[in-house]
Simulated scan of single mutants.
Amino acid sequence: MIRHVWQSWRSLRWPEALVFVSAGLLFGAIDLTSLLELRVGDQLLPVIARQLSLPLISCAVLLLCWLPAARSHPAHPARRQRLVAATALGAVLSMGVIYPLAAALPWPSLCDIYAQTHGKMKCTMFRINAIIGDTLWVFMPALMIVGVLEFRTLRRRQDQAAQDLLREHSQLRRHALASRLAALQAQVDPALLFDALVSVEQAYGRDDPGASARLERLIRHLRVALPRLRDAGATLGGEAELIASYLDLLRDLNGDPPVFECELGSRGATQLPPMLLLPLVQRAVRLGHPRRCWLKAEQGITLGFDQPGLCSEDEDLASLRERLAVLDAKLVCTSGDGRTEFMLELPP
């Protein structure tokens, strides 16, 4: 218990202290307007000091009583009762501190000045009805302040919980998408493989001298594509190799794929989500007949084709943009001057 109280006091934040100090100064300044009607003379500064210091001390006592209750478990069923009890205890204790301190201070009060001005008896503080009234006067505003602070704390916790939930949801979506992309990356078109195997078999059947090279290209494609069954990530160099082996297979099947040019420089090891570039190549081959395809890594990653008009939205491009949106990445397509270029912008 003592440890909790001490840790609660040590956890005081300056905005909380500022709230109680401001409240003390406000309540102390309420009666200062009475000085305009009284002849204070050279007692002005002592009166102001007394009028402001006592409410500040009272708010300090309230703050020390409120902190342990405010630092209790936010989901505790008796939290509100604790806050009310702490505020009531603070009001009582503040009166227990203020009354003896006020009697010991040499500074006159407003009541003393008023009695002196009007020729009345000196003010007597120790009266039961005055003590009860002052306690209630402290308790009610303090309870309102505590209520406002608790409401702000509750809103802050709710906002934090909502942000944590959104962050967790985003992470789950990322993990699910990463699994999806890894599966997509591991996909090898069965029809393409079957046609390639048949082509290799036919080449050997007619004693084609290029049959061995065809088989080597098929093996190369399998060596590049199949490891993605167990690899969760990808590199730019690996994706470029996958594109090259895919286009080589198309060429062996009497197709007319584009010539692939690759300029990665020192960025071949750049990490990127899997299965982002090959679908663009497959889509370009399916929609048109580009003669050249180039992959460059400068400020961004650019995949280009020497054919315009490939920026039109379709299901494949929309699906790719959806994956990139979840990954906080962006795909920009520009078309013109006999070319189409896709610029891939990855998050830092």
Rank of each mutant, 00 (worst) to 15 (best):
R152G: 05
R79A: 11
V224R: 08
R206G: 00
S34I: 06
L236C: 05
Q158N: 12
L264E: 07
Y114V: 00
P258S: 08
A103I: 03
G147H: 04
P141F: 13
N254L: 07
L249Y: 11
L177W: 07
Q51G: 10
V285W: 13
H118C: 01
G233N: 06
L278H: 02
G133Y: 09
L136N: 01
A269F: 06
I145N: 04
A70R: 15
L149M: 15
G309P: 00
G90M: 13
G265F: 13
I132S: 08
D252S: 10
D42F: 01
R286P: 00
Q282I: 10
Q116S: 08
T33G: 14
S34F: 14
D252F: 15
Y114S: 07
P209Q: 02
W66D: 04
V188W: 13
W14M: 11
V326W: 06
R214G: 07
C293E: 01
Q160H: 05
R267H: 15
A297D: 01
W6F: 15
S8H: 09
L56W: 08
V21S: 14
T153C: 11
L192E: 10
A91M: 03
P190W: 11
T135Q: 03
L35I: 03
W14H: 06
C262M: 08
H175T: 07
E201L: 15
L280D: 00
L324P: 00
M343D: 01
D195T: 07
L295R: 02
S335E: 02
D316R: 14
A176R: 15
I243M: 13
A142K: 02
E261V: 08
A284I: 09
G24Y: 12
G210P: 00
E239C: 10
L215C: 07
W137Y: 15
R50V: 02
G233T: 11
A240H: 02
S319G: 09
G147Q: 14
